[in-house]
Amino acid sequence: NQASVVANQLIPINTALTLVMMRSEVVTPVGIPAKDIPRLVSMQVNRAVPLGTTLMPDMVKGYA
C-alpha cells in the first residue's frame, strides 16, 4: 500500500508547510503520495488541517 501525507500537528489555514508538519502513513482513503513531501514544503494549505488528517490535493494551494 502506498503511504500518504498526514498532518503531524494542527496546520492553520494559509500556513506554509514544513517537514515537521507532515508524516507519511498508509491510510484510507489515499491522499497526496508521501513521495511528494519535498514538493509540498513551502506550499500553503487553504483550510485548517487537524492533527492526523490526510492531506488531499485540494487542500494545498498550487498542488493539484
Rank of each mutant, 00 (worst) to 15 (best):
Ala64Gly: 12
Pro29Cys: 13
Gln9Lys: 09
Ala7His: 01
Ala7Gln: 00
Leu10Pro: 09
Lys61Cys: 15
Arg47Gly: 12
Glu25Tyr: 05
Val45Leu: 07
Leu55Asn: 00
Met59Asp: 13
Gly62Asn: 12
Gln2Lys: 03
Glu25Leu: 04
Ala64Asn: 13
Ser4Arg: 02
Ile11Pro: 01
Glu25Ile: 03
Asn14Leu: 08
Arg39Met: 14
Met43Leu: 12
Val26Pro: 08
Gly52Phe: 08
Ile32Pro: 01
Val45Ser: 14
Ala3Phe: 07
Ile11Tyr: 01
Pro57Gln: 14
Glu25Arg: 03
Arg23Trp: 03
Val6Trp: 02
Asp58Leu: 09
Tyr63Asp: 04
Ala7Gly: 03
Pro50Gly: 09
Ala7Pro: 01
Lys35Leu: 15
Val20Asp: 10
Val6Gly: 00
Asn1Glu: 15
Thr15Trp: 04
Val27Gly: 03
Val60Asn: 01
Ser4Ala: 03
Gly52Gln: 04
Thr18Gly: 05
Pro33Phe: 11
Ser24Lys: 05
Ser42Asn: 12
Pro33Lys: 05
Ala16Cys: 15
Ser42Pro: 02
Asn1Tyr: 08
Arg23Leu: 09
Pro57Ala: 12
Leu51Tyr: 12
Lys35Tyr: 15
Thr54Val: 10
Val26His: 12
Thr28Val: 06
Gln44Ile: 09
Pro29Arg: 03
Thr54Trp: 02
Met22Leu: 08
Asp58Gln: 08
Pro57Val: 07
Gln44Trp: 05
Ser24Tyr: 09
Asp58Cys: 14
Ile37Asp: 01
Val60Ile: 14
Met56Asp: 06
Asn8Thr: 14
Val41Tyr: 04
Met43Glu: 08
Asn46Leu: 11
Val26Ala: 14
Thr54Asp: 01
Asp58Trp: 05
Leu51Ile: 14
Pro29Gly: 04
Val60Thr: 01
Ala16Pro: 12
Ile37Thr: 10
Thr15Lys: 06
Asn8Glu: 13
Leu40Ser: 00
Arg39Tyr: 13
Ala64Arg: 11
Ser4Glu: 01
Asn14Ile: 03
Ala16Thr: 09
Lys35Asp: 15
Met43Ala: 07
Pro57Phe: 11
Thr28Cys: 12
Ala34Thr: 11
Leu17Arg: 00
Ser42Glu: 11
Val30Ile: 07
Met22Gly: 01
Gln9Ala: 11
Pro12Glu: 15
Leu40Ala: 00
Thr18Ile: 05
Gln2Met: 10
Val30Lys: 03
Asn14Tyr: 06
Asp36Glu: 10
Leu51Gln: 12
Leu17Trp: 00
Leu40Asp: 00
Val30Phe: 11
Val6Ala: 04
Val45Gln: 01
Leu19Ser: 14
Val60Arg: 00
Leu40Cys: 10
Thr28Ile: 05
Gln2Pro: 15
Met22Phe: 08
Val49Ser: 02
Asn46Tyr: 10
Ala16His: 06
Val27Glu: 02
Val6Glu: 02
Val30Gln: 12
Ile13Trp: 06
Tyr63Pro: 06
Leu10Tyr: 06
Asn14Ala: 06
Val41Met: 08
Pro29Ser: 07
Leu55Gln: 01
Val5Asn: 01
Ile37Asn: 01
Ile11Lys: 01
Gln9Arg: 05
Ala64Asp: 13
Val27Cys: 08
Lys35Ile: 14
Ser4Lys: 01
Pro12Val: 05
Val6Cys: 09
Ile37Leu: 14
Leu17Phe: 02
Thr53Met: 13
Ala48Tyr: 07
Met56Thr: 08
Met43Gln: 07
Leu40His: 00
Ala3Thr: 11
Lys35Phe: 15
Thr53Arg: 07
Val41Gln: 08
Val49Leu: 10
Pro33His: 14
Leu40Gly: 00
Gly52Tyr: 09
Ser24His: 15
Val49Arg: 03
Val6Thr: 07
Val49Gly: 01
Ile11Trp: 01
Met21Val: 05
Asp36Leu: 03
Ala7Ser: 07
Gln9Met: 14
Tyr63Gln: 04
Ser42Asp: 07
Pro57Leu: 05
Ser42Lys: 09
Asn46Gln: 12
Thr53Gly: 14
Asp58Met: 11
Val27Thr: 11
Leu40Ile: 13
Met59Glu: 03
Asp36Met: 04
Pro50Leu: 05
Ala16Arg: 06
Leu40Met: 08
Val27Phe: 02
Asn14His: 09
Thr54Cys: 05
Thr15Asp: 04
Arg23Asp: 11
Lys61Ser: 12
Gly62Gln: 08
Ile11His: 01
Thr54Ile: 12
Ile13Pro: 10
Gly52Ser: 14
Ile32Tyr: 01
Met22Pro: 00
Leu19His: 12
Val30Pro: 13
Val41Asn: 04
Val20Lys: 10
Val20Cys: 13
Gln44Ser: 08
Ser42Gly: 13
Gln2His: 15
Pro57Arg: 08
Arg47Gln: 12
Val49Thr: 05
Leu17Val: 04
Met56Trp: 07
Gly52Trp: 06
Met59Phe: 13
Ala64Val: 15
Pro38Trp: 06
Gly52Thr: 03
Met21Lys: 03
Asn8Ser: 13
Gly31Asn: 01
Val27Gln: 09
Met59Lys: 02
Ile32Ser: 01
Arg39Asp: 07
Gln44Thr: 10
Thr54Pro: 08
Thr18Ala: 08
Ile37Met: 11
Leu51Trp: 10
Lys61Met: 09
Thr54Glu: 01
Thr53Cys: 13
Pro57Trp: 06
Thr54Met: 04
Thr15Gly: 04
Ile11Met: 06
Lys35Gln: 15
Val49Gln: 02
Ser24Met: 09
Pro38Lys: 05
Ser4Cys: 04
Ala3Glu: 15
Met59Tyr: 11
Gln2Tyr: 15
Arg39Asn: 06
Ala3Tyr: 08
Pro38Cys: 10
Leu19Lys: 07
Pro33Ala: 10
Ala34Ser: 10
Thr28Phe: 06
Gln2Ser: 15
Ile37Gln: 12
Arg39Gln: 11
Met21Cys: 04
Thr53Asn: 11
Pro38Glu: 13
Pro50Ala: 11
Thr18Arg: 05
Asp58Thr: 06
Met22Gln: 01
Leu55Asp: 01
Gly31Arg: 00
Gln44Glu: 14
Leu51Glu: 14
Ala34Gly: 12
Pro33Cys: 15
Val49Phe: 02
Ala3Trp: 09
Met21Gln: 09
Ala3His: 15
Val20Gln: 09
Val60Gln: 00
Ala16Gly: 11
Ser42Tyr: 04
Pro33Gln: 10
Met56Ile: 08
Arg23Gln: 06
Ala3Gly: 08
Asn8Arg: 11
Pro50Val: 15
Thr18Cys: 05
Leu19Thr: 06
Met22His: 00
Met59Ser: 07
Leu19Gly: 12
Val6His: 01
Leu10Gln: 11
Pro38Phe: 05
Val6Pro: 01
Ile37Glu: 03
Gly31Tyr: 01
Asn1Thr: 15
Asn14Asp: 11
Ala34Glu: 15
Gly62Arg: 05
Met21Glu: 02
Asp36Asn: 05
Gly62Val: 04
Ile11Val: 08
Ser42Arg: 07
Thr28Arg: 03
Arg47Cys: 07
Asp58Tyr: 06
